[in-house]
């Protein structure tokens, strides 16, 4: 069971936030990957194309593509269509700027072999504590089968 699972990493920005996870194992493209008016992912071929990042906690390995990557999250944030928290497997310069501009909680830099993009699932209710550096699965998405 993943309920109660706690992952320890580095708190990049506090405080804590609770919300539903949107897991993007291949990140989101930095140019025209997002419709900033709606928060919808519009990148061709993206596994969550057509879904919105609004009000979600984004779980991603890192950034991808243009340096404008953070600008898209900044625009979403200004339009009220942005995420409420970030979880990054490994902090990079564009992720750092995205956290800086949106000022939302973030946990990043997981230990080697700990992959939040596989341990956290889409729709999990999670708690991201940017002060303590923890991510907790409060309520896993869907029905889980114990083996």
């Amino acid at each position: 069971m993943r309920k109660g699972l706690v992952l320890q990493a580095r708190g990049a920005k506090g405080p804590a936030v609770e919300g539903y996870a949107l897991v993007c194992p291949n990140s989101i493209l930095g140019w025209n990957g997002l419709d900033v008016r709606t928060g919808e992912i519009i990148e061709e071929g993206h596994i969550h194309k057509g879904e919105s990042i609004k009000g979600k906690i984004l779980v991603m390995p890192c950034s991808r593509g243009s340096i404008a990557w953070s600008d898209y999250f900044d625009d979403c944030s200004r339009n009220g269509t942005g995420p409420i928290g970030f979880v990054f497997t490994k902090m990079d310069s564009k992720c750092g700027t995205a956290v800086f501009v949106t000022k939302i909680p973030c946990v990043a830099d997981f230990p080697e072999g700990v992959d939040p993009c596989s341990l956290i699932h889409d729709g999990d209710l999670i708690r991201v504590d940017g002060d303590a550096g923890t991510v907790e699965v409060l309520e896993p998405a869907g029905v889980e089968i114990s083996v």
Partner: peptide, 24 residues
């Protein structure tokens, strides 16, 4: 603020550069 320039500076010139974004 240009991602290809980050690569050019680090890779060809040996300069020290992180990407970041327009605001930072």
């Amino acid at each position: 603020t240009e991602s290809s320039n980050v690569l050019y500076c680090n890779s060809v010139l040996g300069a020290r550069c992180n990407g970041g974004g327009g605001i930072t």
